[in-house]
Design a protein around this nucleic acid. Structure first.
Lengths: 341, 341
DNA sequence: GTGAAAGCGCTAACAC
DNA sequence: GTGTTAGCGCTTTCAC
């Protein structure tokens, strides 16, 4: 399979000029005769010349046009939409994306990072896994001076750019919406502890209750994973005691849907008797019946902007870390529309 | 940013041996003194040595440990699950995946392939886009002798390995299930023409009708895209004329869900009055009410097996193209359970 | 404006 | 079993 690709040497030989001129012409460096340049480009086109990115990356630590994306999952609406956004920008700028999935496991995440061939990647887009010790990143990646942008699940106290949705205000607005629709006993089924996203949404929830002078009940705040099953379990726990909530604000739509399934199973009328609101705007939320009120996250834009920011960092050697916070949008649906009281 | 990574030269110098010995020790070639080998490995570990994959790929056309994955979308259940399967195998074998998304547009697909730096990828996993001319692939990729495995959306008459679900039998079984539950006027909302997946599911549908001596009505077979909106449109078209079907077999779950939304909107009782069945087993199908009967596709396994096959091809120079067809599993839910007649 | 040549980090003959 | 050396394809001084 020792197939020979066209190289700049081939072009140089055919045109009877030197490889360096070909190289310069190909990359559009200015001090090249317009005429030779065009000849080179034409021949390259004709012969289907493709630069060898290994050689390019190797020579003088040049750009490899590859960026690494490290995230916990891909098989869910939010993550795959973020990647679509990343991909859109990367494609338009001629970058390839190299995908690493951690399965939300800290060890796997670390092993991936440890075994990374940094030299072949120009930068990283990272969404950290749940139990991660983010300071490992400083050690492992950032000491190499490779640009990193964190998105969605960002670590605290990290001198790197971050792109995220407005978790705090999103939660605040959603809970306030529940309150304004007459629900008072609002529980929160939260994400895993230690994730800033979990913390911020919890804070938003607490702030909304406080603002409306609704007492906070610790036992109505349950931390667990992000899955639908976790949502189901949390909800069963909430419904077990004598005193029950009359609404649930879930950290994401999958958990909200889990909650709804349990509520429906118990014959509780969602909307009328019990309010439910989620976070994400997963297409499922518009399919389930009753439809689910949710704080829509700008997933595509998170991906797009993260990638743009990273590319900016890659372009200029000494960049300033930047934080970008994108607003969400409350989508009001049936699950929170209490019948006139 | 001119950061210096540890190289084999550094290791060689520190150990006072030659680079070739280091190189051999690192890759576990056998004719190396056990003792020196261990010393090298220990030092490499200590100094956090990482092989430079550019150099590796460049030198003697060695393996780059990168595989390219080209597919139409990622933001849906099926595709993202396939990628998860691919990723699982790639990770365990030390391969990276480089992702290319065509947005199901033939021009973009072609442009991606045209601009690929083949030299940095050891092989390709491809699911073709809708309007594609698959013979372009022969020309563009396969002439280079790079291993390719097609999955899910595979082109016909291509001398390459293919991994797919059993579309024909899956459709056949699903339609037969509808028939056995008393539905007789079964329409098919199909995928875009020209895709083997579309053709096979259509053939399965036709075969089931034929077997049960149910006349085929051309006007009850509608081709369009794969989206939920397409499902809605197709269904409106089907319900417009005087004579209407009493069941719909959809090429995928998103279209089936689109159909259900229209049916529900018209007050038609799904299950009792009208049967619906899909294909995929998207989690949505278990969420929608009534729940959707569907032919579950082995998405994760499609990814896993495709990747294993590709890696096998990469390992042995002269491989035989292989076809793998994975069975689906009918998941019977409420949308096809006709009340006792 | 262009060419010659060095070298990026690694592998694979080829010697010994 | 180990060292020497010649590239892989490209970029980039440094001459001219």
């Amino acid at each position: 399979m020792a197939h020979h690709f066209v190289t700049i040497k081939d072009l140089a030989k055919a045109l009877n000029i030197s490889v360096s001129t070909v190289s310069r012409a190909l990359r559009g460096t200015y001090d090249v005769n317009e005429e030779t340049k065009e000849k080179v480009l034409a021949l390259a086109e004709e012969l289907h010349y493709r630069p060898n990115s290994n050689a390019r990356g190797l020579a003088a630590r040049g750009s490899t046009r590859n960026i690494g994306v490290i995230l916990p999952f891909i098989a869910n609406y939010y993550c795959s939409t973020v990647i679509t956004g990343i991909q859109e920008v990367a494609y338009s700028k001629g970058y390839n994306i190299v995908l690493f999935v951690t399965n939300d496991a800290a060890e796997r995440e670390l092993s991936i990072i440890r075994n990374l061939s940094m030299s072949s990647l120009d930068g990283f887009l990272i969404s950290v896994s749940s139990g991660t010790d983010p300071h490992r990143y400083t050690e492992e990646i950032m000491t190499h001076g490779i640009p990193v942008v964190f998105f969605d699940r960002v670590p605290d106290h990290m001198p790197a750019s971050k792109v995220m949705q407005d978790d705090y205000n999103g939660a605040f607005e959603t809970v306030e919406h529940l309150i304004s629709n007459g629900y008072r006993q609002i529980a929160h089924i939260a994400g895993p502890r230690g994730l800033s996203l979990t913390e911020q949404r919890l804070k938003g929830y607490l702030a909304a209750l406080t603002k409306h002078r609704i007492p906070i009940k610790e036992e109505w705040i349950i931390h667990s994973g992000f899955s639908q099953e976790c949502g189901e379990e949390d909800t069963r726990l909430l419904l077990a005691p004598e005193e029950q909530p009359d609404a649930i604000f879930a950290v994401n739509d999958r958990k909200a849907i889990g909650a709804m399934l349990v509520l429906k199973d118990k014959g509780i009328r969602i909307g009328q008797d019990f309010g439910v609101a989620g976070f994400t705007n997963d297409p499922m939320s518009a399919i389930i019946s009753p439809t689910l009120t949710t704080m829509a996250e700008p997933a595509f834009d998170i991906g797009k902007i993260s990638c743009e920011l990273l590319l900016k960092h890659i372009a200029k050697k000494h960049f300033q870390a930047e934080d970008v916070i994108l607003p969400g949008k409350l989508i009001i649906r049936e699950s929170s529309r209490r019948r006139k009281l």
